[in-house]
Design a protein around this nucleic acid. Structure first.
Lengths: 339, 339
DNA sequence: TTGAAAGCGCTAACAT
DNA sequence: ATGTTAGCGCTTTCAA
């Protein structure tokens, strides 16, 4: 717009100082919001900044302050493979949104096996002030000890709880499963079975427990428990087995929507209908849930919120605030037509 | 592992120099792969680097070299809203994967309206060496002129071709639509209609053109053209209209899968069946395509590859290489049961 | 081929 | 409340 913008190189703090007639230190104070600057000096500096369209140089700032104002989001390869998992995609969105309100920047690290320690070096090499890690896998110890050298927040589907990982944000899987079971009971169902997830994955364990506890409180016991691997095919297989053992089942809670959809087909194959003969509740509220036939009643995961919460937690951690070791986000039941 | 690692602060280039018995300049040369270093000196330096587990400090490097080795991926808010668009998610994955082979780092900028110029400042403030922008929208001029100050590669669903944007990577929409139309012709269909996308979006235009051209070459003309907005509902409406005008239609090409799915329901409502009465081909090969009933024949978009190509193009641009202004990625037809 | 020296743009004591 | 002065860790002329 104006002449100063046509100058080749970016304006520096020094130029601002000269223009405002103060020292560089003062400009730095103003830029960093130090309280010990007189109002008139501050506004003079602000004017100069605006006039020159000054933007601080990050590299210089990091070098001097030893802080990068960047955080990493590490996506283990196994997760990358399911990158089109809507849950994950939405989580990234939450992270980005939360960070937009801060001075922090997001570095995405898609970890491919070939570069596994490139990632570690990057993280440990002072390139970021902290990191977020999303993992689907229990056995993933690779980042557990990272938290000794760097603020880390785990999230998504967190590690096995036996590992003392410092900070994690998770969805309240247990409570969600309980909501699902209670809903089925309220609908008058009595022979309620479940298609659980793998027991080596925390969500698998928690969702099964929440389900079982709720039934017990209702004075019922599961009409069957079969395990799947969260895939639609495994859901169909599990449903078939459930039906073989007890053809009179009148409801089923699947530990995720994909398995619920698989169950749909097994139910149809058995000549039964949803929800008339068998009510079905899923978990995740993924893209398939709403458009399934019939639309699936399911437990909604607040994924955007989870990403945002992870980001906020990490930022607080970096700034030295006290933060709870684990944050559990509430789920909510979305009632559609499968119950 | 060893004693030096327990030392509080990270090893510096200076420490490496001392240990290798050379100057800092030499270490810098080795680290940066300069050719003018004698082999023995180089290996001594490499040993020292390994022994100390030295990792160069990025901030210092950027400050001195005026390069950041970071690239941004800007996601306009409108796109963020459809973040769970599998196409986009996969594209990000491709970008990440391609970058993993380089020295570059990915900064994700989810742009929220409130911070729109925060993004511009960030990009122009020397925080990145270049940027990738994904956009669904024609009218989005905000980044068009960015390319005057910074290497930029547009991608995904690029801007209106009337804007002279320097570099873009796109899927070959025209060719893809042609493949779809030719397939229908080969299947013996003769009354072929299309549910086109909006004419203010490049994919809408290109897919319609590719379709029409192919029919013309086959000596046919469209049995009908209706426009939708890429949503399933609009696909259903369009299909209904198509059927009203010409009940004898025996095939339809929808400009995306979502509209094809919408068409499915309109076809069913009309008492017709897919593919017996009407063959349907979509475009995108999204998550719904494979699981639709019947599974949808569609044009596959190489989204991972597109992300990777965008990243590679940008890196080349940054390194000063010559790169083509537009790269068109080939699509492929995935034949399933709807034709 | 190697080293010396001068910054890159900023922050953070320390003075004043 | 403001200025002075050192660096932060690296790259890069320029000499040797």
């Amino acid at each position: 717009m104006n002449a100063s913008m046509t100058s080749g190189s970016a304006p520096t703090l020094e130029m601002v100082a000269a223009r405002a007639g103060v020292s560089r230190a003062t400009v730095s104070r103003v830029v960093n919001g130090s309280p010990k600057v007189s109002p008139d000096v501050a506004s003079a500096v602000h004017e100069a900044i605006a006039a020159l369209n000054y933007v601080p140089n990050r590299a210089a700032r990091s070098l001097a302050s030893r802080r990068t104002h960047a955080i990493a989001l590490v996506v283990p390869e196994s997760t990358a493979r399911v990158f089109n998992d809507p849950f994950f995609a939405t989580l990234v969105q939450g992270v980005g949104l939360a960070l937009a309100d801060t001075e922090y920047t997001l570095s995405m690290l898609l970890e491919s096996e070939a570069h596994i320690d490139k990632t570690r070096r990057y993280l440990l090499g002072g390139n970021v002030d902290g990191t977020l890690v999303v993992s689907h896998h229990t056995g993933d110890h690779s980042y557990a000890n990272l938290s000794r050298s760097l603020p880390v927040v785990f999230g998504g589907r967190p590690l096995d709880s036996t590992e003392r990982v410092n900070h994690t944000v998770d969805v309240d899987n247990t409570r969600g499963a309980t909501q699902a079971a209670e809903h089925l009971v309220e609908r008058g169902r009595r022979r309620i079975a479940t298609i659980a997830g793998p027991l080596d994955m925390p969500p698998g364990v928690d969702r099964l427990r929440g389900f079982a506890d709720a039934l017990e409180r209702a004075g019922l016991s599961p009409a069957g428990v079969e395990h799947g691997d969260f895939s639609p095919a495994s859901g169909a297989v599990a449903m078939r087995r459930l039906l073989e053992r007890d053809p009179a089942i009148d409801a089923v809670f699947a530990a995720n929507d994909q398995m619920a959809i698989g169950a749909y087909s097994a139910i149809a194959d058995a000549g039964r209908s949803v929800p008339h003969d068998i009510a079905v509740v899923g978990f995740d509220d993924d893209r398939y849930a709403a458009t399934a036939m019939p639309p699936l009643t399911t437990v909604h995961q607040p994924s955007v919120e989870m990403g945002a919460e992870m980001a906020r937690t990490l930022v607080r951690l970096i700034e030295g605030e006290e933060v709870p070791e684990v944050t559990l986000l509430p789920t909510s039941l979305v009632v559609r037509e499968s119950t």
